[in-house]
Design a protein around this nucleic acid. Structure first.
Lengths: 211, 211, 211, 211
DNA sequence: TATGAATGAGGATTCATTCAT
DNA sequence: CATGAATGAATCCTCATTCAT
């Protein structure tokens, strides 16, 4: 809910502000982040800021919204195309791949998301009840796969959902940690999936699937 | 690196300070945490604080060190007893169980760790090169298991290590999110391990192991 | 001294600005009053304001002038009609009645006047030498009454003038305090006048005048 | 409710702060008053201020309390001595005299009191329900006088109380306006009282009382 | 060594006023 | 003339850190 003035701004100035904000929030927690740093980086006057946003929180919410929007959009595009004709594991692969790519391409955004996760009060105020979205998403996916007979019936959906979500974080972490590893995206994802599919236990009777 | 004066303090005063610091850091980010709140809670004079610690960061590093130490110690105790005679999966189970219990019993400490994770600059300054400790630990464990022929030779150790570490976070998250779930610890860990061992894919010829 | 542009404005817009200004100044001290609030309420652009007035003070002086004008006009009308044929006490009664009614009908204006009274610097700058107008007015009235033999010759005109002016404030205060009392206007004024005429001391030989 | 630190201050520093605050509040309304000006005048650091007071309002309340206290004390002293053996008019005279003297000796304090009177919201927050204290005080005094047969039975106590309170303001105003008039205190008070006692109407049969 | 007062840098926010269109 | 965005000075307040006792 930035003010109208913000949306009336010339594209490039608006973008400069967004970038400056992302920079600052990526480096410092919400409380630590300094409006001063943001306006300096963006090259606008302190007073102007308050003509665009009600206050710091207003800006922060906006940025968080932007991130969510961008991520959803990013992932959805890939998903939507295959929703119907892909198997559970194929979908999961697509999902991980797009999450992986998103993370790689938007590292600063990740920092902010992670920041938020670790600030319960703020988190609740901003995200509200949307909390478990991603875990629930995996749970639904698993149920579908289960119904389709693709999954081991003895696994617990709730726990598996959490694992799948957790892996997604692991990947993100992979990137977050150091942008420098340039494994082939596909390879990493495929290896993760192999583990997810088959576990890590040696099973003599297992036929080598895929890898 | 608190000053000597700190270590010369009577045990209970020292503990009061530590507790107060943990309380504050669990609730607020490093920058946001207030020395004032800490000294108030601890019941010491503001000036005294600076006779024990160089500055806020000094205290913070010390607390982080304490947490690491405590966690390692906690986990090690369990591990050490079984290192020799347990199989890879038995060890992994012990490991997860103790991590799970540690998390459950030290929720405030977790908050601090998570805070830290999300503050790149600070993180680097404080943790520095110790970074990948836990992932490397899993990697070594996996290598041992691999050597012992317990693991599927086609898995990639680096990726699997990351997965195992990621799962550990998932569990922690489970607790962090809401302290209220009182699943049986064992049950959750066992379900996680089942997935790790066998994956989630239906495999007709698989004998139902354990669960 | 608003600019010409202001006086060229369509009547209703000009009035909207005046009303908005009165609203704001009635609620907040001069410094505290916000141009922003005024232009918002009036529904004009911020920039326009500065095309009508030099600055905030310019507007304020104008409003104060308006109030003074309105009050004088209000009172005068009643007075003028009776100047010639009324006795001192009859005139005084008319005067109080109209002041009372003015106050009752223009409570917001009173607030502004009172605000001003309590800000010496501003007061002086704005009212300047007009200061004692009302006291002097009472003094002249008293002198006339004295000359006509209507008044106790032993009273001191200067002091009595101040008393009469003070009573006028008392009445205003009566209204300012809570608009809710709806004594009959006449009754209050009559009682006040009775005291002014006869004092409050028991005087055995006094014939009960009027009340 | 300043903090303890304030009361532990060396007498002269504390007084410097109080003086600076009174200076500022005497010139500007509560909102307009600037902490900066106060600390500069008092010669203390900005931060120190907040070690003595919670915030600006805290200081303001304290100052108001000081004024009230001082005034009550001042007036009471005179009153108490004569409460028993003085007649109504003698008491009234004492009362006015002490109010007059207090006003003369504490002009800055008056400004602040008047400021407060004209800021309903703040007033209510600070004074609360004590509002009509002074008017009620006069009412009680009048009732006593009435019971003792000293007063004209036809006057309305409520209205007379308001008049007496109003006169008190008039006197204050006398001083507030310009400190320069140096009428003899007694003379002014006596003249006021004469009017209050006898009114201003010429009454042929009246014996010249006192004056 | 303990204390707690003193300090001032730094941050968010408000608002009158200017200016470009 | 109207508009409303841009500006930056000014204000309150917080807090780590220093310092005198």
């Amino acid at each position: 809910m930035p003010k109208d003035t913000f949306f009336n701004l010339p594209e490039d100035k608006r973008q400069r502000i967004i970038d400056a904000a992302i920079d600052e929030f990526a480096q410092r927690s919400f409380h630590d982040a300094r409006i001063t740093a943001i306006v300096d980086t963006a090259g606008i006057a302190k007073g102007s800021f308050y003509q665009y946003f009600k206050d710091k929180k207003d800006l922060f919410k906006y940025i968080i919204g932007l991130i969510a929007e961008k991520k959803i959009e990013y992932v959805n595009e890939d998903m939507m195309r295959h929703m119907q004709d892909y198997s559970f594991f194929q979908l999961l692969r697509e999902l991980y791949l797009s999450a992986f790519r998103f993370a790689k391409e938007n590292q600063r955004l990740l920092s902010i998301g992670i920041q938020l996760l670790s600030s319960p009060d703020l988190y609740y105020e901003i995200i509200g009840e949307h909390r478990n979205t991603s875990i629930e998403f995996y749970a639904r996916l698993l149920e579908k796969g289960m119904a389709a007979g693709e999954l081991d019936p003895s696994i617990d959906v709730a726990v598996a959902a959490r694992i799948l979500a957790g892996l997604s974080y692991s990947m993100v972490d992979l990137i977050y940690e150091d942008g420098k590893l340039d494994f082939d995206d596909m390879a990493i994802v495929d290896q993760m999936l192999y583990v997810v599919e088959n576990g890590i236990k040696r099973q003599p009777q297992r036929r080598q699937s895929g890898m």
